[in-house]
């Protein structure tokens, strides 16, 4: 039976997530550098590119705070801060091996509730600065939410259905033999898509797109910008990491201890997302909405039906 991690884990978790976010962003920077500037051609140059996120963070710390004319500062700031808060709180139910900071009986619902805060966060950050381009971009995320949220919830429910429990620890325990990804591949794929969408990253980065001068982040400078964009990487790490206990067997695996398997699998999922992102342009919801509702929703529904039938006959 899974149990809560010791108290010090509460302090370690945010730090560990931040380190994972920096490493992921560094890997992404190395790949982007190779595409834009040619291959690094040397460990030192690649290392310098990998350090880009750290340098960027320092640069933003040195910037003067900034606000726009007649801005809604309270709501804008709230939106900015909400992104990392939602990410870390959602991360509380992430099992590290077999122990999470907390493993409530409704852990899956807690995760869902926390990542749904991103809706509020991006919209508030877009509304706050009183700037047309960031306002447009904030609303882009709402449309995105309408498209990704249902397949996402069906994917979550399907995994919980396989374990007949909403406790994350039980979901992991149910995968001791066969990982859920084996008999729920559609739910896994839908989950990964929605993980990208809720982290508004990669092909789902339209709310922060270049065509709107940075979108919801267009007017953010200094620490605000760092918190918002850094929080986005945290959110990506947490949502990608949550696919491990849901579908990839959590800490289960031969030879290595549970925590090592969790780490390996999370790194693999993140690497996969960072690499696959390169193959796609940014998706606009105007086109994606129809595909999400008429393809992803029925597919995930059929997947849930299949799992329900299996559960009945088990």
């Amino acid at each position: 039976m899974p149990e809560n991690a010791p108290v010090w884990a509460i302090v370690v978790l945010p730090v560990a997530l931040a380190v994972a976010a920096v490493v992921t962003a560094g890997f992404d920077a190395v790949l982007s550098g190779a595409a834009g500037r040619g291959h690094a051609g040397g460990i030192r140059r690649a290392g310098r590119r990998a350090a880009t996120p750290v340098r960027e963070a320092l640069r933003l710390l040195v910037q003067q705070p900034r606000r726009t004319t007649a801005a809604d500062r309270l709501l804008g700031r709230l939106g900015v801060v909400l992104v990392p808060v939602a990410a870390v709180l959602a991360g509380a139910v992430l099992p590290w091996g077999f122990r999470a900071v907390s493993d409530p009986s409704v852990g899956v619902v807690w995760f869902n509730a926390m990542e749904a805060l991103a809706w509020a966060a991006v919209w508030l950050a877009g509304w706050g600065p009183n700037s047309a381009l960031s306002l447009i971009s904030g609303y882009r995320f709402l449309a995105q939410g309408l498209a990704y949220e249902l397949p996402h919830m069906f994917a979550l429910t399907t995994a919980a259905l396989g374990a007949e429990s909403l406790r994350v620890g039980d979901v992991v325990a149910a995968q001791e033999g066969v990982w859920f990804v084996v008999w729920m591949p559609v739910a896994f794929a839908a989950y990964l898509l929605s993980a990208l969408a809720m982290a508004f990253w990669g092909p789902f980065a339209h709310p922060l797109a270049r065509d709107a001068a940075g979108g919801a982040a267009a007017e953010l400078a200094g620490v605000d910008r760092l918190v918002f964009l850094g929080g986005r990487w945290l959110l990506l790490v947490v949502t990608a990491g949550f696919s491990v206990p849901l579908f990839l067997g959590g800490g289960h695996g031969p030879l290595l201890p549970g925590w090592a398997w969790t780490l390996l699998k999370t790194a693999a999922v993140l690497a996969l997302l960072v690499i696959l992102r390169r193959a796609l342009p940014v998706l606009r919801m105007e086109r994606y909405m129809e595909a999400a509702w008429m393809v992803l929703v029925p597919l995930t529904l059929l997947q849930a039906l299949f799992v329900a039938v299996v559960v009945l006959n088990r």
Binding site: S32, G36, P281
Partner: peptide
């Protein structure tokens, strides 16, 4: 503008 930097960047290079 379409948001596909991974091919936009090599084009510019």
């Amino acid at each position: 503008v379409v948001g596909w930097d991974d091919v936009a960047a090599p084009f510019r290079r």
